[in-house]
Design a protein around this nucleic acid. Structure first.
Lengths: 167, 167
DNA sequence: GCTTGACATGTTATGCTATAACATACGATA
DNA sequence: TATCGTATGTTATAGCATAACATGTCAAGC
């Protein structure tokens, strides 16, 4: 399996794998993209992204804040929210509203409309490409004259591991 | 235009129409369904649904609470949250996470996976049928062995009226 | 060099959203 | 009429998010 394939396989979000590896790759990609677009991936913002990547799960803003504070940054809520908002704006992270949480985007830069699959048993979150979902939404929007700017698509259920354990 | 068509036309959520009419129909349908399934549509719950139907937009739990209190029910948050949770469980209302709000379902009982289109300018919310979206999600879930139990599909953008006004 | 403006960060304070935990009431049933 | 399940009411608190203002930083233009 190549690195490319590995990172684009959403099932891996539910399985053990080499975090350090994908963390480094994604972070590097985020830096490239920032350089290209002029976005300023400052120390707090970069560290916030690292935190999301390292934990490799969805984190609440206050969890991120705590880790930012440990790294010497401010420890007031706006510090975390601003960094996270930046990451979301740049497409480096996604906000998962069902969990009031944020997760690093596993393939930044690739235009994609992410769909999230959230396990209600272990809280793991898989980000899967969902172009078909996006197309269906665009079509539904067109029928009512609505112009879509952003989308949140989230499913709650059981991941393979927990489904197995439950049976 | 028949009543059936009227209620199933999501564009109407963005247009003026006869609230009293659709409110009554939906409420009656909810009562039928409750009788069938044995769900207890008690006074608070019924009033909460009426409140959502009357306002005909997404309301925060505390807005609903305020109106429940006016009607003589308790005025502590759990009163509203419990009633709203019941309505969501029964499929009589939907939770719109992007707005931290709740909206009455315009066609309860009909199996449907709703998608919401939220205008960022006027906060109007249209509920559109999105079977194609649901199918795409099921397909994506199947590929990673995930079993979907619930879904939230929300789009942010501009409704026809506000898009017009902006141009 | 210095000023200015844009942007990022830090801090205080507060508001909004949601739930835990316990008390009370009510109806169905044995 | 005792009991169980369910619904409602209430107190208290936890958790999430942002407004508003102060400070710092850096680059462009005078």
């Amino acid at each position: 399996m190549t690195t490319e394939q590995k990172h684009s396989d959403p099932a891996l979000a539910f399985a053990a794998h080499d975090h350090a590896h994908c963390t480094g790759d994604v972070l590097a990609r985020a830096e490239e993209l920032s350089a290209e677009t002029g976005a300023r991936l400052t120390p707090v913002r970069r560290r916030a992204l690292e935190i999301l990547l390292e934990s490799h799960r969805a984190l609440g803003a206050y969890e991120v804040l705590e880790k930012l504070a440990e790294a010497g940054f401010g420890n007031q809520p706006p510090v975390a929210y601003r960094a996270l908002d930046f990451l979301v704006d740049q497409g480096f992270a996604h906000r998962i509203r069902r969990l009031n949480a944020f997760a690093a985007c596993m393939h930044p830069g690739e235009a994609h409309s992410p769909a999230f699959f959230i396990c209600r048993a272990c809280d793991a979150v898989a980000e899967a490409p969902a172009e078909a979902v996006r197309r269906a939404m665009e079509a539904a929007a067109a029928r009512i004259g609505f112009s879509v700017e952003r989308m949140n698509v989230e499913a709650l259920g059981l991941c393979p591991t927990c489904a197995e354990a439950a049976s």
